[in-house]
Computed example of a mutant assay.
Amino acid sequence: MTGKTIGTQSAGSGEAETPVFDTLVQMTLNAFERSALDPETYLLTRIAALVAMGASPASYLLNVGAADEIGVPVERIQGTLVAIAPVVGSARVVTAAHGIGEAFGLSLLPGGVPPGEGEQEGAQT
């Protein structure tokens, strides 16, 4: 059974293995290199796509965290949410703002409106 993965450790090797995470990191690096976008535009585009998909707070944590690390101001993230709202609908933007706020302890909405309140999913305004 040497070489089989047990939990997050490879039996016999002593090295941690994270094949799912490693694959996601490699896919992201490949996509960034091929996009020909600057890092800020790339991350703002990813955040917009996450909103459109109705992503979980964990997804925002990874992407907004990366944006924060390279110095993307929160105002640029807010501007991205404003720009995509007419396309993806207010319900998705409110859910995303709540998810980002939850992940980072930010208040992007007045009064911290919880997800699900407001317009129906997919409604466009």
Rank of each mutant, 00 (worst) to 15 (best):
V51P: 06
G99D: 11
A16C: 01
A103C: 13
A103N: 13
P19I: 00
E121S: 00
E121A: 02
R92W: 01
T41I: 03
V72G: 00
A11C: 02
G116P: 12
L61H: 07
E75L: 11
I70W: 08
A97G: 05
E40L: 04
R46T: 10
L50D: 07
S10E: 15
P39W: 15
G99M: 12
A11N: 11
P114M: 14
I100V: 06
F21L: 14
R34M: 09
T45H: 06
S35I: 06
T2C: 07
V82D: 13
P57K: 10
L44H: 00
Q124T: 13
G65S: 11
A96N: 01
E33W: 05
N30W: 05
L61F: 13
L108Q: 10
A67Y: 01
A103Y: 12
R92G: 00
T8G: 01
L61M: 05
V51K: 01
K4R: 11
L50S: 09
R92V: 00
D38Q: 06
L108H: 04
L50C: 08
A58T: 12
G65Q: 13
E119S: 13
Q124E: 06
T45F: 01
L29D: 07
V93H: 02
R92Q: 10
S13L: 14
A55K: 10
G7A: 10
L109P: 12
V64I: 08
L108D: 01
V64N: 06
A123G: 02
A55C: 12
E33Y: 11
S10L: 15
I47E: 05
Y60A: 00
E69N: 11
P114F: 11
A48R: 05
T41P: 00
A31W: 03
L24W: 09
E17V: 15
A48E: 01
F21G: 04
Q78L: 11
I77L: 07
L29A: 05
E17F: 09
S56V: 10
G105V: 03
G112K: 10
T2R: 04
E102S: 14
L24N: 01
L106R: 06
G122T: 01
G79Q: 08
A91C: 00
V94W: 03
G101M: 04
I6W: 09
T95W: 08
E102F: 15
G122L: 12
E75F: 02
V25N: 09
T5K: 15
I77C: 04
L81I: 13
L106Q: 02
L61A: 10
V88L: 05
E33C: 08
E75S: 15
S59Q: 12
S90F: 08
G118M: 07
S35F: 03
A66Q: 03
Q124F: 03
A55Q: 09
A83W: 08
S56A: 06
G116Q: 05
T2F: 07
I100T: 06
N30S: 15
G7Q: 10
L29F: 06
A36Y: 07
I100W: 07
E121C: 01
L37W: 02
L106G: 00
L62E: 08
Q9F: 11
P86M: 09
T28H: 06
G54F: 02
L50N: 12
E17H: 02
P39H: 11
T5M: 12
A31M: 15
Q124C: 04
Q120C: 03
E121T: 10
H98R: 01
P73C: 02
T18A: 04
P39R: 15
A16K: 15
R76N: 13
